[in-house]
Design a binder for these strands. Structure first.
Lengths: 141, 141
DNA sequence: TCACCAATTGCGAACCATTCGCTGGAAGAA
DNA sequence: TTCTTCCAGCGAATGGTTCGCAATTGGTGA
């Protein structure tokens, strides 16, 4: 839990109470996809005076320093999750918004094939797929 | 070129000069990814009085009626392209923004595997991959 | 051909996540 | 403890997109 904090200092960043609070809020939901607004709400449960701008700036720093992953789930806002989990991707239900993980291994050699076809070197960014989840499928029968 | 127009009427939509103009602007760039603002600019070259709201509303209708594909290229705005092209996906260069197509066949049986793993039924939405294009790779050597 | 009505347009304001500019304050090195 | 530099709080700005409403118009029925 202090790893994040130490990581910050190691990079010449200051360890402020706000950054601590934000990091702890993220640790408290290790598998969730949290929007900036979610993080603000969680942080304020214990530190009511932390400002929205501060949260945005801190999340940006965490992402830049590799502590957090910023994920585009197709909506109008960004989501954040702790880095260092098993590498995975997302399938988002277009009906109910549920987000499900897809193991990276499921992609097989897709990455290689795309790189061969396009000449790009793909980044580590997570990939978002869209569809309808099983319970929404059942509900529409 | 009138197919789009007829499609509209067939669905009980009115065929207005604005919709014609917007459709023609889209047809003029059959392989481009145009933002709403791009479309506004192109439309106004010939029809200077078409309103931004009208363009947004019309694009939404075209997407809903299957004439257009709305694509999320990872930035802060949506892009549109004519439907009915070869099914494909996108790789976006995180350095320079270039967008390259990936044939759907490149995905192989990925769709099936994801559906089997997750229980979702995937939609036809295009998939966005991110990386660095070959010329940016070369430039960074 | 005409009149009528719902669909559509134009316009400006509203939205909303995110970013910025600035100033006071605090972290951390010396 | 001091000093410097980074950081937090605040409110305003941004920018793509959506909304509300009044005026207009497409297309149908007469």
């Amino acid at each position: 839990m202090v790893e994040g904090a130490d990581n910050l200092r190691r990079r010449g960043r200051r360890l402020t109470p706000q950054r601590r609070a934000i990091w702890e809020a993220l640790l408290a939901e290790p598998h969730e996809h949290l929007s900036a607004e979610d993080v603000v709400a969680r942080v304020r449960e214990r530190s009511p005076n932390v400002n929205t701008s501060t949260v945005y700036r801190t999340l940006e720093i965490f992402v830049h320093d590799g502590l957090l992953l910023r994920t585009d789930l197709g909506g109008d806002r960004a989501y954040y999750e702790l880095a260092g989990e098993h590498r995975h991707h997302h399938v988002i239900c277009e009906r109910c918004g549920t987000v499900t993980h897809v193991h990276d291994e499921t992609l097989g050699d897709l990455r290689t094939r795309i790189e061969r076809d396009t000449g790009y070197r793909l980044s580590d960014r997570e990939i978002s797929f869209f569809g309808t989840c099983s319970s929404c499928l059942r509900a529409s029968d």
